[in-house]
Design a binder for these strands. Structure first.
Lengths: 225, 225
DNA sequence: GTCTTAATTTGTACTCGGTATAAAATTGTG
DNA sequence: CACAATTTTATACCGAGTACAAATTAAGAC
């Protein structure tokens, strides 16, 4: 069966140009609606006490549609996670004559200074992570994301230093940095929960800096330090 | 990986006096049988292609019994994982005047020297981790175990230095060490897969030592270094 | 040995996340 | 309107894990 010109055209236009017709708009709206309702339900009742069917029903949509937009249930809560990777990539790309680790340290300080969302400790953020802490599945997903981040950062470091992709030292430095970030972040959350007030980022930065000096020490003699 | 008599004794006597009647013997046998058959099936067909029902049927036992001994399917493959914790605890308890990090470094070198099971790179071990690498669920469980280990080691470090239980520096040092171990171990597996021969542990130790110097650097000024 | 009691095993039925598939509804286009 | 492409839906299924009561089995007393 030979294909018509229109079929060929349609397939070619699909990947690049976004027509932004009624179809795409509705899709985005549906996706957003599902995500919002899911987040609301999860925060109210807890992740494990809300089924995907609940979410679908509350969004007036079938279960299949939910899984059509969000492959796993956890993705309903963790949206927008690869912004971090882009941030790291940019920092490494524009590192100039600084070492990769130094560039990342500068990025961290910038983020804290400008109260970026990743380090801001508002009650909303704390509530978000409370839901995560109460759910084994969400905690597992968090670990998975951490591991992906570690792997990606390792690749970026190796690329930035002109080293082979799997360079163990790059992987090591990435593991140390991501680990330090994790610990510092959890510590900040913990302090914010103990003391009722918002937490000053000095402690966070100090703990994180310990991680950076550790990474530098591990990378001594390599092109990453 | 055969366990020593001292380990088995210590673990069994721990809860209370257990009469070694027919009942307990049968239980141990059943448990062992299930575990063995499961391991065999998983290594043959891959973790995801064997259902718990398959394991139960092959062991002439009901599904409920399987879950009675092993709460989750992953536990059928990951048995005996808290031996590590005991090893770490012993090393820290007998550290004498050395710093906690120094004591752990000594432990690592000892383990490598005496070709302990945790660092031995036999084809069997490599096959084990191949099964893990091919299964998302087992990889997730690996991450979970890593996290538990990190938390426990953090507590042990704090206790060993007389610091409060949640001391962030202890958590940081633990995260750095566990991360370094993970990277070094994966690297060793990778090398063992590329080169066909058994891998000399020098590279593993060198990479791990980078992690220890990193941890020392992060702990400078604290009682851990 | 038998009887009683406690522990273990089993069958059954269920929940929930996730997939496969094909039919139905919706949208874009001529 | 008609037709093709895309999206949504219904339905049926699989596998991990749980709840619960019935059935089996070992331990201990007599």
């Amino acid at each position: 069966m030979p294909e018509t010109d229109r079929q060929r055209e349609g397939r070619q236009r699909a990947p690049s140009a976004k027509p932004d017709g009624l179809r795409e708009r509705k899709k985005r709206e549906t996706r957003q609606l599902i995500s919002n309702i899911a987040t609301k339900l999860f925060t109210e009742r807890g992740f494990e006490h809300v089924t995907v069917d609940d979410v679908a029903a509350a969004a007036n949509v079938s279960k299949m549609t939910v899984f059509n937009y969000f492959p796993r249930k956890e993705d309903l809560f963790f949206d927008r996670s690869d912004d971090v990777q882009q941030l790291l990539r940019d920092a490494l790309d524009s590192r100039g004559r600084r070492s990769p680790v130094a560039a990342l340290r500068a990025l961290a300080h910038e983020l804290v200074e400008q109260r970026h969302g990743f380090v801001k400790m508002t009650p909303g953020i704390a509530g978000f992570w409370k839901v995560v802490a109460d759910s084994p599945a969400l905690r597992a997903r968090t670990r998975e994301i951490s591991e992906e981040l570690e792997r990606d950062l390792g690749r970026m470091l190796a690329a930035s230093a002109g080293a082979p992709e799997g360079d163990p030292i790059a992987r090591l430095v990435a593991a140390l940095l991501v680990g330090a970030w994790r610990v510092a972040f959890r510590d900040a959350l913990h302090r914010q929960r103990s003391a009722r007030a918002a937490i000053s980022p000095e402690v966070f930065l100090e703990l994180l800096d310990h991680g950076f000096t550790a990474a530098s020490a591990a990378a001594r003699g390599s092109p990453y330090a």
